[in-house]
Simulated scan of single mutants.
Amino acid sequence: MSPTRPRPRAARALLAGFAVLVAVHLVALLVRTAAGSGSGAGALAHAAVLATKPALMPVLAGYALARGGPPLMAGALLLGCCGDTLLQIGGDLLFLLGMAAFAAGHVCYLVLFARHGTAPTRARTAAAAGAYALACATLVVLLWPGLPVDLRGPVAGYSLLLTGMAFGALRAGALAAVGGLLFLLSDSLIATGIAAWPQAPAPHFWVMLTYVAAQLALTLGLLRTAGRTVPAASAAPHPVRV
């Protein structure tokens, strides 16, 4: 699909809205942890968490479209919204469905990297592939004993796809590559919680901080790269800039 026509004013408003939502969500997570969900402040913070989490990615998707990004980029972000919502509701089945939604989003990103990215040199590709493969294998091996038996296969398969997405992000420049690594970190934090590893204080805060930073970095990196690869005949009148 072709990129959409840029709307700079709408893009600025949507990015500001995204920043506000992120701030409210992260602060609410900290308040909920500190106050406890049973207190009045904790209950209010919990309501803010539930209200803001499903809204994050649709607003970022709107920003991507307003910047003239490819519709598939918005699709990847909206699949992230599906995953966020399903994981927030909870339950084993919904966890697996949420994981599937995120996996579909990673496939969208891989297609975007292939369309708009530039392949690194062979030496860099080989070195990065080895590093990412080693990281994925190490994480799965370490997590395996602590994972519920019925989640071991899905988590291993998802980890492989997620690592592939993070590796593929190298094609879209440094900012997207940072986004891929942050996505790996965020989902690794979730996996360590499932495997009952010791957690840092306010673990949900760190999961969401790295997650929103990952999605934003991937979006901005792809917008920059897609802006350079739009064919001249179909380019929008205003270039895409970060």
Rank of each mutant, 00 (worst) to 15 (best):
Q88Y: 10
A166W: 07
G180R: 02
A114C: 03
L185C: 13
R124M: 12
T163L: 01
I190T: 05
A23Q: 15
T125Q: 12
V49I: 15
L160R: 02
A217P: 10
V178Y: 11
R224A: 15
L78W: 10
V149G: 00
L209C: 09
G17V: 10
T210M: 12
L218A: 09
R9D: 09
A129T: 03
G179A: 08
R152N: 01
S39R: 12
Y109A: 03
A233F: 07
T210P: 09
A236T: 06
A114H: 13
L78Y: 03
F95E: 08
G98M: 13
G69L: 09
G130I: 00
A48Y: 15
L151Y: 11
V155F: 08
L142F: 04
L112E: 09
L223Y: 00
A129P: 02
G130S: 00
Y109L: 06
P237S: 01
H25I: 14
L29M: 13
G193P: 06
G38V: 10
G193M: 12
L182I: 07
G105I: 11
G227K: 04
A174D: 11
Y158N: 05
T192D: 04
M99K: 05
L94C: 03
L147D: 05
L223W: 01
L175R: 14
F183M: 15
H106P: 02
G62A: 04
M57N: 09
S39K: 14
Y132V: 14
G193R: 11
L142Q: 04
A74F: 09
A196Y: 03
M99W: 02
A51N: 12
C108A: 07
L139R: 00
G164P: 00
P237M: 03
P6D: 05
G173V: 01
Y63L: 04
L209H: 06
S2W: 14
G193H: 09
P71R: 12
S39Y: 14
P148N: 02
H46L: 13
A176G: 05
L161W: 02
I194P: 05
A200V: 15
A61C: 03
A236I: 06
V141P: 00
G193V: 08
A233N: 12
A191P: 07
T118K: 14
F167P: 02
A196H: 15
Y211R: 14
A41K: 08
R67P: 03
A236S: 13
W206Y: 15
L139E: 02
H116L: 04
P148I: 10
S37M: 15
Q199V: 10
A213C: 15
P145S: 00
V155T: 10
A232V: 02
A232Q: 09
T52W: 12
A48N: 15
V31S: 11
L223C: 04
V155M: 07
